[in-house]
């Protein structure tokens, strides 16, 4: 891949400042059959999430008498990247992400209310440009609220990282692949507990502190966008069919 100058004169290669998020658009309730859904555009990421449940847990031996099982399936479409046509079906990467995203919502969903049931979260990345797991968490939280699944809190997530010795927020694919470090963080909105944390690359403790500072500010903004998306659907009288507004 062609090398680009990732950071120059206080600006990143795409013109953003260190603490600037890419453009984020969230729309709640975009599907008609799913119990809850959301569509999210984040830079060139385009992600759709559908939620079903609580429903019967199949296979039954996975059910728990103590609460609902949260099943997440994160899926990259074969046409999601600028590069070659991919394969469909789960990869090792998508299985890992499914697990860590699922665990985020195991934390906030009031699972104990629905013993032996399952709650399913389907994440489909229609187009990916870095930061899809964070986008997925942010969209899934809206879809779960749309489904009415009881949650102790809303969750949003953002990546922070390091390019050209500078800590920056929300790395896109180019920054992620050519930069020095990338760290995905999901926060519970109310108490700011960390629910997802995956980092690779190299950062100092001071870098990490700066990263959390930037991420906390971005989290407030993302939560605001989630609130607006949900308000949009429910404050206005909602007539007509739901649709994905790509």
């Amino acid at each position: 891949m062609e090398e680009v100058e990732l950071f120059k004169n206080g600006k990143r290669y795409d013109g953003r400042t260190v603490e600037e998020l890419r453009h984020v658009k969230i729309k709640a309730h975009v599907l008609n059959d799913a119990d809850g859904s959301a569509y999210l555009e984040w830079g060139n990421n385009k992600i759709i999430v559908g939620v079903y449940g609580p429903k019967e847990c199949i296979p039954r031996h996975l059910a728990s008498p103590y609460g609902a099982v949260v099943k997440c399936i994160y899926n990259m479409s074969p046409f999601s990247s600028l590069g070659e046509h991919g394969r469909s079906g789960p990869s090792r990467r998508s299985r890992e992400l499914s697990m860590v995203i699922g665990q985020v919502f195991e934390n906030v969903i009031e699972r104990e209310k629905f013993p032996k049931a399952a709650i399913e979260i389907f994440v489909d990345v229609l187009q990916g440009d870095g930061g899809t797991r964070c986008a997925a968490v942010t969209a899934a939280s809206v879809a779960l609220a749309d489904a009415g699944i009881p949650m102790k809190d809303m969750v949003s997530a953002v990546a922070v990282g390091k390019v050209k010795d500078t800590v920056v927020i929300d790395l896109d694919y180019v920054e992620d692949s050519q930069g020095q470090a990338d760290c995905a963080i999901a926060f519970a909105n109310r108490n700011k507990e960390v629910l997802l944390l995956q980092m690779e690359g190299e950062m100092s403790k001071e870098d990490m502190q700066k990263a959390f500072e930037l991420a906390s500010i971005a989290q407030e903004r993302l939560h605001q966008l989630q609130v607006e998306a949900l308000k949009e659907v429910y404050m206005h009288i909602n007539e007509g069919d739901a649709f994905v507004d790509i």
Binding site: L31, D33, A34, S37, I48, V49, G50, Y52, K55, I73, N75, P78, S88, E120, F122, D124
Partner: peptide, 11 residues
Amino acid sequence: TSAELMPLASY
């Protein structure tokens, strides 16, 4: 040509 009936589309 391939088609996927994505699980989010229908129960």
